[in-house]
Design a binder for these strands. Structure first.
Lengths: 177, 177
DNA sequence: TTATTTTGTTATGATATATAACATTTCGGG
DNA sequence: CCCGAAATGTTATATATCATAACAAAATAA
């Protein structure tokens, strides 16, 4: 793994071996990647998340955390399994996420008398106030994205992405959790 | 962190406290997430990558690895910094990626006589053969995606995603690496 | 009752992304 | 030419996601 150890002076013979190729600028041929949906999708998603993080930096909240808080906000009393299913997060990965939100005092787990295995999730009053403030930052973020797309483009994009979600589901047989 | 310790039987009083709310199925209200570009983009990207991994399972290759191999294939002799810039990967993160590809015997670093700091990157013959085989699997994956979108939809999608990439770049002032 | 399933949890691993710091080398200005 | 600045690859490290296996407790089905 130590490919470049402390000091290994390369020989003059080495230096004379291969020709320079001299790739100066960056006219790198990315083909066929820019025509691959997956590649462009990934880069666009990263750009959008980066804008989200930038716009909401003052609140130190990640997109995944925001989505969880939003679902709790609109569906108070949900169980963890319901949130994880709805958001496509494995229930095993939701645990740490909720731990964090609970530690920050934004959400709380509450025992469910009717099912002592599960917890009902709620925003704390602090969490509600927090979301009230975050929503406006997220709106600004959305404006950035919509500004790039236009209303029509945004609708088209959502429609196309939903087609992907509908048709590129889990493998035939390999279902869910 | 041990929220559910060994044995803490909840009292009958607890059991009588709050009402059930009885959220049975999963009519979870996700709004406004399904209208947020970032959210839908993320879910679609995950679905597409999952299909990539499924379709290319026999080759045990990740999208990022495939993109690096593709760039090397089409631009033999590139330096690491050029690849990382072209693909938007931090040069610091490309190291382990290339270590892996080298360990698998698919790519190799070659000293550049004209610049002893950098390495020129090439596919090995094994790497070339590997890519020849992988390309057909990736083509099948692309067919899956295109089947969901249609040719027209695919073009529209790429166009819209590129609009995002063009306009939602790095923050004004915060530039690159 | 007993066997199975569900729910939340822990532990763990793989992948991606990010920053800071470093050695070596290259390059530009004096 | 020398010297400081920049470039290149590297290590170390932290965080965020996503994934699987295994478990305890509770609910459910048989």
């Amino acid at each position: 793994m130590a490919r470049r150890p402390q000091t290994i002076p390369r020989s003059a013979a080495d230096r004379a071996a291969a020709e320079p190729v001299a790739r100066t600028g960056n006219p790198v041929d990315l083909s066929p990647l820019p025509d691959r949906v997956g590649y462009v999708l990934r880069r666009a998603q990263l750009a959008v998340f980066k804008d989200f993080n930038r716009t909401c930096a003052e609140y130190d909240i990640r997109p995944a955390q925001y989505s969880v808080l939003t679902v709790i906000e609109n569906n108070p009393g949900l169980k963890q399994i319901e949130i994880s299913t709805a958001l496509g997060i494995k229930r095993t990965n939701l645990v740490a996420l909720l731990d964090l939100l609970e530690q920050r005092g934004l959400a709380r787990r509450e025992p469910v008398p009717s099912d002592r295995r599960s917890y009902a999730l709620f925003l704390t009053s602090k969490g509600k106030a927090f979301m009230d403030r975050v929503h406006s930052s997220v709106a600004r973020h959305e404006d950035n994205v919509n500004g790039a797309l236009g209303d029509k483009g945004r609708e088209q994009l959502l429609h196309l992405l939903n087609r992907i979600l509908d048709k590129i589901g889990p493998a035939p047989g390999e279902d869910e959790v």
